[in-house]
Amino acid sequence: MKQLFGIFMMIPFLLFGCGRSAPEGGDDVSISVSTEEKPAYLVVFSQCNNAEPYRAAQNHLMEKLWSEHENVELEIMDAQQDNSKQISQIETTIRKKPDLLIVAPNERGPLTDIMGKAMDADIPTLCLERDIVEPNFTSFIKCDNYAIAKSAGEYVEKYLTEKHGEPKGKIVELRGLLGVDAEVQRYEGFHEVLDKHEGIEFVQEAVADWLQSKGRERMTEILRAQPEIDIVYGHNDPMAVGAYLAAKDLGREKEMIFIGVDGLGGEAGGIKKVIDGVLALTFIYPLCVDKAVEVGHKILSDPDFVPEKTYVMDSAMISPENAAEMYEKVTLD
């Protein structure tokens, strides 16, 4: 029995020792985690999957921006791309009665109910970037994926017309996780522009689940089957970069251009890939975090503040011409 006690006594150390550390960033005002003096406000951010670079950038900015406000304790929960896990995490969060809940839903359908429960518990709830089935949120901070995909389509239309003298050519599309709103919008906006041209052919529409590794795998197969490709359109930058790597392996990367979406800053982000000549084009998909913190902070500090139901964030096209300038602007720290 001694062993038993010894082992179980380790758990409190794990719990206390590995709790959240204060965020980095060198700010004077850091998020307080001291147990004696509880911060006035608890903000919980339910993130669907820390493992994606876009999500990591969101978390990073979220920590940075909230740390600028005193008396706010921020908790970030990672659902690891698992609907059940995110539902459970939000369920447990509701019991803690936070002052603000920010949710980046993993998928539309599964998260709808539980966000409704948070609203029922009078917790102001911000829905970030991805839509849910019913408007179970205080505010929805969205980016217009459809508009982004349409701009991508228009660019491709122009590019192919210049290349072949008329709008014709062969396109490979690498799709994100099927059924997710972003995937649907990035697909439909693109096809809205291009499907009307008979000469433009989608030779493959492969599903690569947002992942660079899968983008590379799927593209390798496609390259074997397709002797001619003009455009590779990835629903995010990592998949487009994966496709580029596959083409480079076979020495065919110069035959086609690669277009992505997300346009994150930093070494690993899509803007750097445009600077490096890997991607011809990417579109900034806003992190939405700055707006969330701004709206969230107003909700916390001003009881009379009535937030709008929807905030739409702006995008921007990144080409080699403006990449260096945008890189400076978007990269954090």
Partner: peptide
């Protein structure tokens, strides 16, 4: 219960996984 406790305290999910590993080994050893 362990998962719930970790979530109530807002501990990183990855730490939760590591703790579970310890529990499995400890329990079977006992």
């Amino acid at each position: 219960v362990l998962t719930n406790l970790f979530r109530l305290r807002g501990v990183d999910t990855n730490v939760e996984m590591m703790a579970k590993a310890v529990i499995i080994i400890a329990a079977v050893r006992l």
